[in-house]
Amino acid sequence: MSLWTLILQRILLMIATLFCVAVLTFLIVNVLPGDVAVAILGDQSTPDQVEALRQSMGLDQPILLRFGDWFGGVMRGDFGTSLTFGRPVGPMIWGRLLNSATLGVICLLVMIPVSILLGAVAAVTQGSVLDRAITAITTFLFGMPEYVLALGAMLIFAIWLQWLPGAAMVSPGENLFTQLDVIVLPVLVISLGGATYIIQMTRASMIDALGTAYVRTALLKGVPRWQVILKHALPNAMLPTLVEIGLSFGALLGGLVIIETIFNFAGVGQLMVMSVQSRDVPVLQACVLVIAAAYSVGSLLADIASMLLNPRLRT
């Protein structure tokens, strides 16, 4: 099976997955207790007012019909109108997506090379003080909830040392690169959290790879040790790590609910929390779709990278 047919298959499967995600979110949102009309009008509203609003928003229609309407719109690139803001969802999410994506890419660029390096170093020096230090610190960070890390970092760098701003009050779509200092703390916290997985994964698979017979073969061919590590062990050891990295794509885009809230960063995660609170179904659905797509694209990229590294997958 060639690389291209596999990519094509994966893209088709991805579309099927996203469709399932759309159906599921629609169903779940509709069985959730609470009503958008009540949420908008507040507790003091009369049943008549609620009913009138429901009718004007089309909420009295049968669920299948509403889903059909919504899905048809999505296929045309129209994600509907926000129930609480009354603005089209598309542009609303787009600006925040840009923010989140920029933050995510910067995090990946910082996190991946550093954690692979640390994981590999720990594996190569297995049992040494360095390895134990790396393992101890990653275990500590692994057990630390993200909000503690975030608040701790804020306390140290923004309040005590006053080196960096504590909040990232960027508006959706604003160019992040003009004010890089605001994203230093979010990047630091996110990378510290995400790196623990990748470091541990790299370390474990690197230790496996270093114990294989083909690494021994390379050593006993007279290849210098550092070359054996970089050329023979590392590429094979990267295979399990790649899956982890691929999944972190989605996490970076949508899983940052807490971080975005703490740093007041206008990203997709923050928008999603807001939409849940206000029962803003179209916005929530769009957010979930975008995040699911990010997960899918991430694992697709990881699979492609695995195929490039592992000939058994492509031949």
Binding site: T212, A213, Y214, R216, T217, A218, L219, L220, K221, G222, V223, P224, R225, H232, P235, N236, L309, N310, P311, R312
Partner: peptide
Amino acid sequence: SPREWQDVRGNRIAMVYQDPMNALNPAF
């Protein structure tokens, strides 16, 4: 020294292993 070993291994003494499937690097 390790440097001298590198010149001996694979060059003056070479080895054939049990289980050739694992002795070859799957990615090359």
